[in-house]
Write a protein that binds this DNA or RNA. Structure first.
Length: 277
DNA sequence: AAACAAACCTGTGCGC
DNA sequence: TGCGCACAGGTTTGTT
């Protein structure tokens, strides 16, 4: 579910609600959520601790603890972080609860693909190796056509597949990849290393513009309302989707074709065959 | 190297 | 109403 704009929206919500609050109680329901370490490791790592910062790398949410340790949360497909008054009724699938005085932070995750981990930033290679392998973050890092050209170089895989590869570019998922390719007028199945310079420039511009606009809109909430921010509010960027989920509907860009659906790497892909070459 | 499938889970929506 | 199936925003792993 959540891609870069949704994770960024959650990050900003956490800065406003739980930053600098001491964690006085840690509850872990489903141990699967803390499978990388253990229930006890999370309790020991967070009890009595203050979260003093939140950063984001791609879809990874990273908290800094006053103990010197780090807190990593990945929402994967169905994870949500919600902040509520202490004692509120918890939704189904609430697997972790951090009580911080008058508020509680809940990690809710029906499909249990998500993760919550306390790690030692000095031992990243052992404890959070994937963080070291993430590619450029188009919002958090300097990003332009040259950076994108390097990220796309050396592979003939379909450009959509490469944009989804978190080792090359961190943060794009299935929704935003399709939206970006449409706005750049590039077909999803073009070999990444065969794009012309002008196309790479359009793509870089579209990535920055779409992600920035989506963050301003608080992310995208689809019909199932799976994604909401820490206060339970929906995003609004879905109203600006031009292709995602619009199979057989008229193209909003050219008005002359309809949106087609294909499958790439097992993922649904939406595009306009007339606009995207 | 790349394409594909399966794995991890639960919920929802659809056709019948 | 109920049943079975397809499908879902992510990522890793293993197989052709």
């Amino acid at each position: 579910m959540p891609e870069l704009p949704e994770v960024e929206t959650v990050r900003r919500g956490l800065l406003d609600t739980v930053l600098d609050r001491r964690i006085d109680r840690v509850e872990v329901g489903r141990e699967r959520t803390v499978r990388r370490t253990s229930r006890q490791a999370l309790i020991d790592g967070l009890s009595g601790v203050v979260i003093v910062g939140f950063e984001r790398r791609g879809k990874y949410l990273l908290g800094s603890l006053d103990s010197g340790y780090g807190l990593m949360v990945h929402l994967r497909m169905s994870g949500r972080l919600l902040v509520s008054p202490t004692g509120s009724k918890r939704p189904a699938h609430t697997h972790v609860v951090l009580t911080m005085g008058c508020v509680e932070l809940w990690f809710v995750d029906p499909r249990t693909f998500g993760e919550v981990v306390v790690y030692d930033p000095e031992r990243l290679e052992d404890e959070m190796p994937e963080l070291l392998r993430l590619g450029v973050d188009p919002i958090a890092d300097p990003f332009d056509a040259d950076v994108l050209r390097s990220a796309l170089s050396g592979t003939s895989r379909a450009v959509k597949t490469v944009l989804l590869d978190q080792h090359r570019i961190a943060g794009l998922g299935n929704i935003y990849t399709d939206e970006v390719l449409h706005r750049a007028r590039v077909r999803f199945d073009r070999p990444a290393n065969a794009l012309r310079q002008v196309e790479i420039s359009r793509l870089a511009g579209a990535i920055t513009e779409v992600l920035t606009a989506a963050i301003e809109s608080g992310g995208s909430t689809l019909d199932d309302t799976q994604y909401v921010d820490v206060a339970g509010r929906t995003g609004e960027f879905q109203h600006q989707h031009l292709v995602y989920g619009r199979r057989d509907q008229g193209c909003l860009t050219c008005g002359k074709s309809v949106i087609h659906r294909a499958t790439v790497g097992g993922r649904s892909t939406f595009f306009c065959p007339r606009c995207q070459k």
